[in-house]
Amino acid sequence: MVKEEVQQLVNNLIQIEHVSTTLYLAMSAYLDRKNFTGMAKWLRLQSEEERTHMLTLIDYLAGKDGIVQLKEIPEQPTNFGTPLETFRSVLEHEQFVTNSYRQAYDYINQIDPQTAVIVQDFLREQIDEEAQSLTIVERLTLAENNPSALLLLDQELGQRQGGAPAVG
C-alpha cells in the first residue's frame, strides 16, 4: 500500500490536472464564442491532454492500492479577455503546474523513488508545455493590433492534432 504522504501528493497533482482540464475547456469555449476557432481547438486539445495526465495519475495511484480523492473543482470564468490575455493566463497556469511538479519531485524523490519517476516524466513534459505557451504569447504579442496576423495565428493553432501542440 502507498504511504499516506505519497497518496496526498499524487492526489494534489490529480487535482491540479483536473483544474487544468476545466480551465482550458472554459478558455476553449470562450474563444470559440469569439470566433477564434483555431485557438479554441488548440485549447480543447490541451484540455484533453491535461485530462489524460489526470487519468494517468489516477491509474498510478489506484494501481498502488491508493485512495483517489477527486475534490471539488472551482467554477471557471466565462470571460478571458483578448486572445493574448487568454494565452498569458495559459502561460501563467503552466508555470504554476511546472512549479507544483518541481516541488512534488523534490519532496517525493526522498521518500518514494518509484513515484518520483512518474512525477519526473510529467516535469519533463512541462518543459514543452511552457515553451509552447510562451511561443503563442510572443506571437500574439506581435499580432495584437493586426487582425490579419491574429487570424493567421488562429488558423495555424487550429492545425493542431491530438498529442503534441502545433506551433513553432
Rank of each mutant, 00 (worst) to 15 (best):
L140A: 06
N79S: 08
Q155E: 01
Y30T: 02
Q76A: 08
E72C: 10
S28D: 08
E94Y: 05
E49C: 04
Q114G: 09
L43R: 06
D112N: 09
G168F: 00
Q7Y: 06
D59C: 04
Q155C: 00
S47F: 02
Q155K: 15
R139Q: 14
Q126K: 08
R51K: 15
S133K: 01
Q8H: 10
A104I: 06
D59V: 00
L150I: 11
T141E: 11
N11P: 00
H53G: 06
I108V: 12
D112V: 03
F87V: 00
S89G: 14
E144Q: 14
D32Y: 12
E49R: 04
T115P: 03
P83D: 07
I127Q: 04
A143C: 06
A62G: 13
R160Y: 01
L123C: 11
T78A: 12
Q132G: 14
V2L: 11
L61F: 08
Q110S: 10
I136C: 08
Q69D: 07
T86N: 02
S28E: 06
K71Y: 08
V68P: 07
A166T: 14
S133H: 05
S100G: 09
Q15H: 15
L142Q: 13
K71C: 09
L9R: 09
Q120N: 13
V117S: 10
R44Y: 13
T37C: 04
Q159E: 15
E129L: 00
Q95K: 13
R102L: 15
L57C: 09
Q161V: 11
L31G: 08
A116E: 00
K71M: 12
